[in-house]
Amino acid sequence: MGKINLDRADPDFRRELAKQPGGDKISACFTCRTCTASCPIAAVNDTFDPVKIIRMALYGLKEDVLKSDFIWLCSSCYTCQERCPQGVRITEFMTLLKNLAVKEGNMPTGIRAQQDLIKGEGRIYPIDDFDNKKRDKVGLPPIPTSCSVVKKLFPSE
């Protein structure tokens, strides 16, 4: 991202975020960059920068944040949140942004695949008879191959 275009800013975004868990403390950020300096993703990829994402959200750059690819690079390792001297719940904030991005239609295919498997099969690695054969061979008990309870937990999916 180059220059910030504040004409695109949505002044309500900050207030919208402040009402939700993870977004309620971001205005305490004083840009010390402890988060970015501690981030294992930022260390290998320069498109991911936690302090910049917090600033962008505070400036109201809603679309630039929620339509971005970079929010999905957060590994939710909690290093930033544990170290933030201002008590900003950065990992929870990143999770909030990802949840909001999904509502705007921004969802990586791998994340969608995981969600479909969980809501459809109850597991990210559904167990089949072949898995149970391998389990039996080494003396492990079988795991159920179907999971109907997710249909009750998520009836609208």
């Binding site: 969600q115 969980i118 809501k119 109850g122 597991r123 159920p144 309870v149 997710v150």
Partner: peptide, 21 residues
């Protein structure tokens, strides 16, 4: 027997559903 996914991989996309799991 009835244990299902803990919900962790779904936190990023649907925090509420992940909590229900």
């Amino acid at each position: 027997e009835g244990f299902v996914c803990c919900g962790f991989p779904m936190n990023a996309s649907d925090l509420k559903a992940a909590g229900v799991m």
